[in-house]
Design a protein around this nucleic acid. Structure first.
Lengths: 334, 334
DNA sequence: TTGTAAGCGTTATCAC
DNA sequence: GTGATAACGCTTACAA
């Protein structure tokens, strides 16, 4: 059943059927009704591929992330998809992992479907060595690119990101102000936003007279039980710490585990801060003080930017906003 | 830059270019090289829409879920996408929420892109009233439908699901065997798999001589802090309970909160079981004993089924597998 | 092995 | 308002 069949049954031309389908007002009401009745009767739906070929768009965008099951990324996907759907765009999702080659393949998978735009979730996508980002810059020549919580300069590339430096500095300041003297910092990867957070931590330490703060940074790759072990090792090594600032909430749950196992009372003797304001922060007991980096706002803004780009507007390529602190029960009050 | 341009530059016909693009072996090596060089030089990529129109497929499938940021669904999405990508299929994602009308709209969004198959994640999609599932049955007339962790009978509809009845019965049995005399059950929604789990719990209670087990079922909708309040209320009401079986890990973290606030020692005085084997079970302190309903296996199986369906094979419409118990620290040992 | 030409099912530009 | 008809850019018989 195609547009020709419908036009025959309705006794009109395919042009008229097409007009009815696309809501043109240059169709008389009687003809419109006649056509709509036939469409209804045969439950006809236009062929998406032919339609796309004519319009050169399928109203679909690509979303790339490293791991859709990560709580932060999963949230971003949810909000992005919701906003895109509001604008009648469908969302194609592709998880890349952390290998550059795989990232390129995934982008290719989306681009080969002629998506109208591409969203990258997370700063994992902005690589250390500039030439490793060429595949993104190349893509942007034809397809608008939006980088969420990462920054990459280039034509047709728009970055939307939380001021992680400031948020990280603020939450470290908070913990100092509540009496901590010896914080340590846990992180997972050293990507763009990861570095910003570390700088915020270091700046706060500097402001509070800690001179050897670089020695208070600890990488925690791998699964959660490792985090606990790493903290035990730090204690064994003789480095004193009375608070943990973490690059994400999952690491913070590791710190909670450590504190509980060592019978440190939270937050009186030991303070902990997470990052991302994810479900993990509230599922933990005690609930974890965390940074809200406003995923929803970020996604709403990105899609709104996209729509403006499609309308040919000229827009700022870097869009930064502030995070905020959510105080729960792993930091002291007052 | 289209196939005609390439054919001219390479001095061959468009048919030959097409053959090269599609890896036909009926092209001489010299011509192939000539064409590939031109393609490379101009960075030509074939137009996806025209290609789809010819092939009547864009090698893309739709994934529907109620909420991609739910930890369980996020995992399913991750594994599904991974398996689909292995088979060169792209994934279109759509989150529906819980309103029937919205579910239908989302399905329409995917179907209007001519996806090759549709996956429904979770039993949220199988409604109480049979006629509410008609939109799925209707879709299945043209597009294969795969229901993950739910069951719906119909032509071209394939269900892949964990035996939640058995798993729930097993984990309740386990808690009884470790000395609990008075378990209660927490659930969120009464969908297909939700009911199966409840039946498993009730069966185990019956086998252990509890006659009023229906009174031990509690609905916990809404956010996490409500779960804790509900448990407090149950205690206030005078109903004694020494263990909590939950329909998902998030509810179980609520039970952990309750126990810790009431200084009940876990698992000696109070046992807790979750469901889904999600990151929440290990991020909690103590880590939560849970049911592994093998999301990865489910997704791998579904995609493998899909590929077989595409090859025209005749397959069972109901595919059930067993879950298994992961014992952590909220249940007693030995 | 290669080329010609007929689809695929729309949208959009003309006339009328 | 409506109807021919030419794109859109591929795939794939069928010829050569």
């Amino acid at each position: 059943m195609n547009i020709y069949d419908i036009s025959k049954k309705a006794g009109v031309s395919i042009a008229t059927v097409s007009r009815v389908l696309n809501g043109s007002d240059k169709v008389s009401n009687t003809t419109r009704k006649k056509v709509l009745d036939v469409i209804e009767e045969y439950r006809y739906t236009p062929n998406a591929f032919a339609r796309s070929l004519g319009l050169n768009s399928m109203y679909t965008v690509g979303i790339l992330c490293s791991d859709s099951s990560d709580v932060y990324q999963a949230q971003a996907i949810y909000y992005l998809e919701r906003e895109l759907k509001k604008n009648a765009y469908a969302s194609m999702l592709c998880c890349t992992g952390h290998q550059l080659e795989e990232k390129q393949k995934c982008l290719q998978l989306l681009i080969s479907r002629n998506v109208d735009a591409v969203f990258f979730i997370g700063s994992h996508f902005v690589e250390e060595s500039p030439e490793s980002n060429d595949y993104i810059i190349e893509t942007a020549k034809k397809t608008p690119v939006f980088i969420l919580n990462g920054e990459l300069k280039g034509k047709n590339i728009y970055s939307i990101l939380c001021d992680d430096y400031m948020a990280s500095k603020d939450i470290t300041d908070l913990i100092f102000s509540h009496g901590s003297t010896s914080p340590i910092y846990l992180y997972r990867t050293l990507n763009y936003s990861g570095k910003k957070k570390i700088h915020g931590f270091l700046k706060s330490c500097e402001n509070h007279g800690i001179t050897t703060s670089e020695k208070r940074l600890f990488s925690c790759p791998g699964p959660l039980d490792k985090t606990c072990t790493i903290l035990e090792n730090i204690k064994e090594s003789g480095l004193y710490f009375d608070s943990v600032i973490s690059a994400d909430d999952e690491l913070a749950t590791g710190a909670v585990k450590y504190a509980l196992h060592n019978h440190l009372s939270i937050p009186e003797d030991f303070q902990i801060a997470g990052y991302n304001n994810s479900v993990l922060s509230t599922c933990s007991t005690p609930e974890i003080t965390t940074v809200d980096n406003r995923v929803e706002y970020m996604c709403v803004t990105s899609v709104s930017l996209m729509m403006q780009v499609f309308q040919g507007q000229d827009l700022p390529t870097k869009n930064m906003f502030s995070g905020s602190i959510i105080e729960h029960n792993t930091t002291r009050k007052g």
